[in-house]
């Protein structure tokens, strides 16, 4: 990734939130933060909500407190989207990821403002947003390349052609990093879907706003319904379901929390779920992106086929 110094002048943050600071008397229109399942913005079936609070004690919004049933619905959506998404041309997946970046770029200001409301300094917020856009572009570019990095043609004995290719593992449940509410989420989402998986993300519990706004940009990015599903709510309530569900093939967990990791690993035995822990990644650095994040959510398939062996008799071959 490029050096991430951000030119402040490149940001346009003069609308909406900043107007308030200028003291205009217009009544603010508050946004309802809905969850995103199967390409639709829904309220949680539980009807519950919570009110995350920033350091200044301001209530950020009424945010859906998702239940296991919301998760269940999201898994159904992700599973039914998997076949179509995984068999799309890789180039097309790349273009959709690029489209996401484009849409995000156009709404930078909104994300910066949201991050700031969630206690991120302006400088850091601007940096995080730009990094997020770049990260999407990074993975957009990988969509049709990682296969070439991780595939092999294997020189087996006997008259056979044999090759190994990565294939998406399936439906992935992801607990997004609690820090970096935007960059962190995109850093774990992008490699999952770049690799043809579909996913259910749980947004940062304390800083969930960007996740839902991100869903709005995704929604406008030609991303098919169900490929990305974003839930909000309490990690402690939901994590068990993320790890237990029998139709989830892999779970990503990003906190450095040994007890939870142990619980997740134990639950993963239910269906031999792939359990992936990114517990010490600095998402804002170079180590936060790599094709190996894609490969972590891939299975390797090896295919054999006989080769008919006629000819090659003389020297004229």
């Amino acid at each position: 990734m490029e050096k991430t110094t951000v030119k402040k002048s490149s940001l346009s943050v003069s609308e909406n939130g900043l107007e308030r600071k200028k003291g205009k008397k217009r009544l603010e229109v508050l946004k309802t933060y809905k969850i995103y399942i199967n390409g639709q913005f829904l309220r949680t079936e539980s009807g519950r909500y919570y009110q995350p609070v920033n350091a200044a004690g301001e209530k950020l919004a009424n945010v859906c407190l998702c239940s296991r049933k919301d998760f269940r619905d999201a898994v159904v959506a992700a599973r039914s989207a998997f076949g179509g998404w995984s068999s799309r041309p890789a180039l097309n997946r790349g273009q959709i990821l690029y489209r996401m970046a484009e849409m995000l770029e156009g709404r930078k200001a909104q994300f910066v403002e949201e991050l700031q409301r969630q206690d991120v300094s302006k400088t850091k917020a601007e940096k995080e947003v730009l990094l997020t856009v770049d990260r999407l572009i990074y993975y957009a570019g990988w969509c049709d390349k990682y296969q070439q990095i991780f595939s092999t043609v294997n020189p087996v004995s006997g008259s056979y052609f044999n090759f190994s290719v990565p294939e998406p593992t399936g439906v992935v449940s992801i607990i997004a990093p609690q820090d970096y509410p935007l960059l962190g989420l995109v850093s774990v989402m992008a490699p999952a879907i770049a690799g043809g998986n579909t996913c259910i993300l749980l947004a940062s519990e304390k800083k969930p706003l960007c996740a839902i706004t991100l869903a709005e940009t995704l929604h406008a990015s030609d991303l098919p319904p169900g490929v990305v599903n974003i839930l909000t709510g309490k990690l402690s309530e939901l994590i068990k379901w993320f790890a237990e569900h029998m139709d989830v093939n892999a779970t990503v967990f990003c906190e450095n929390d040994v007890e939870t990791q142990k619980m997740l690993k134990e639950k993963s035995a239910l269906n031999v779920k792939r359990m992936i822990f990114y517990d010490n990644i600095k998402w804002e650095t170079e180590q936060g992106q790599s094709p190996y994040f894609i490969f972590d959510l891939q299975e390797t398939k090896t295919t054999w086929h006989p080769i008919e062996n006629i000819g090659f008799g003389g020297g004229a071959y």
């Binding site: 008259s159 056979y160 006989p306 008919e308 062996n309």
Partner: peptide, 8 residues
Amino acid sequence: IDQTGAEE
């Protein structure tokens, strides 16, 4: 006929 299989 698959040649490889037949030969094996």
